[in-house]
Design a protein around this nucleic acid. Structure first.
Lengths: 237, 237
DNA sequence: CGAAACATTGACAACTTTCAATTGCCGTGG
DNA sequence: CCACGGCAATTGAAAGTTGTCAATGTTTCG
């Protein structure tokens, strides 16, 4: 059994609002949801669990027995480096699948950023399913491929200047959360800094810099309005 | 048909010397090679092609119709940024599979670093095979998982200082090429710099610094001997 | 309302890049 | 065989960017 002291298993099965796990741009137009055997299977077989804000979902080095999908809230995965620095490996928003390490042990830790609901399913069961049903296997491959692309994109981001990194981060968040021009950040400046490999002071200064250029507007610390997408994309290229 | 002016299709089918594509630590002990359906399939169905040094294998934005495995030589994938900077996305050594983008178009360009032989196979055929044979599907998933881990490792590297990046790079190359303490670099300082997000001057200075600390020895510009692994690993965190 | 955490801002230090010059390596042709 | 030319690599000095340390302002939440 999972031993998450801070969590509890919900009896209800909330409908998922987004299906980001499959190739991103896939709006369910017309009200009739498309078939997503992998996600359907996860919801069929999995348990829904809740994690309060700032609680651990799994730790680095623990057995990677389960895979997760975010239902609501947000999750960050991270590593603590020997010198004490923290590297955020990724943020996961509703619809995203995480914990799918292809090793026996989790290579990162995972925490709820805010109060979060996830669906949990045995990884071995997913693998068995994938072995039986090529469609599910193919979907798993797609999910992994998406994750790979996302990591590669971020890797390329880390090669660039602070301004370019922050711009890229804002664009990524805007696309993933898709709230139009307004980006609601569920995470702190330090989270962002650890994600981008900067200090939180530099993140703060860079945001101000972008605001001074009229590329963005910081209406509240966690609420940023994108004013000039092309300027941001120029930095992204 | 592939339209690589600079390449030609070989009639011979050279035996592969390494099987890095499968979970890395998998030496074929006992002389009898293990079964690798994915690789076997690639060699069965694929054509062997040669690319002279510094020639393009595919370009960013081209249709991603083919997947490749390096037989001999070396390959780099990269992006050119609008401002002219080049970002090297990855190096591929014999045994490595590349071009497996999970999109319609290649997200990076690929070039032969030195004279290089590769096996080429239709990506759609791999996918069809994977749909029919869960074992191959599983292997594809493993290859992708390995790539994912490698990218994640490099991502962590990019957060660190120049010295730590260069040390990490040397360790990665030493492990992948596994020529004992001697690392033969097929790429230039500029390639390394573009891979690590540094300038070639910094790479050069850092190598000297490591040499001064007796951690390495630069016996020739492209030939580096690792003298003190634990010192390098300490930098690796 | 008040405390704690989060965020911003400034000054200075450290590291990396940029610009410039020099050295070393290697293949070609005399 | 050696000289030359071209590219890669090294090295130095100055400039720029980001990190560090410190102080202050702001939001959130009990």
């Amino acid at each position: 059994m999972l031993s998450h002291a801070a969590s509890h298993i919900d009896s209800s099965r909330p409908a998922i609002s987004s299906r980001r796990a499959s190739p991103a741009q896939n709006p369910d137009v017309g009200g009739v949801p498309k078939q997503h055997p992998l996600i359907d299977a996860m919801h069929m077989m999995g348990a829904t669990m809740s994690f309060p804000s700032e609680t651990e979902i799994f730790g680095e080095g623990e057995a990677a027995d389960y895979a997760y999908q975010v239902i609501s809230g947000g999750v960050r995965t991270y590593k603590i480096l020997r010198d004490g620095r923290r590297q955020v490996a990724g943020f996961y928003l509703p619809g995203d699948i995480f914990g799918l390490d292809f090793q026996d042990d989790h290579t990162v830790s995972a925490e709820a950023i805010t109060d979060t609901k996830v669906v949990v399913v045995k990884r071995s069961m997913l693998m068995t399913l994938a072995g039986r049903d090529p469609v599910i296997g193919r979907e798993l491959l797609n999910v992994t491929g998406s994750e790979l692309r996302r990591v590669q994109t971020r890797m390329l981001l880390l090669l660039k200047s602070a301004e370019e990194r922050v711009a890229g981060f804002l664009l990524e968040m805007a696309e993933r959360a898709s709230g139009g021009n307004v980006v609601e950040l569920p995470m702190t400046r330090r989270d962002i800094a650890d994600y981008l490999g900067l200090t939180f002071e530099t993140v703060s200064r860079t945001l101000r810099g972008l605001a001074n250029k009229a590329a963005i507007e910081v209406t509240a610390p966690r609420r940023i309005v994108l004013r000039n997408w092309s300027a941001l994309r120029l930095l992204n290229a």
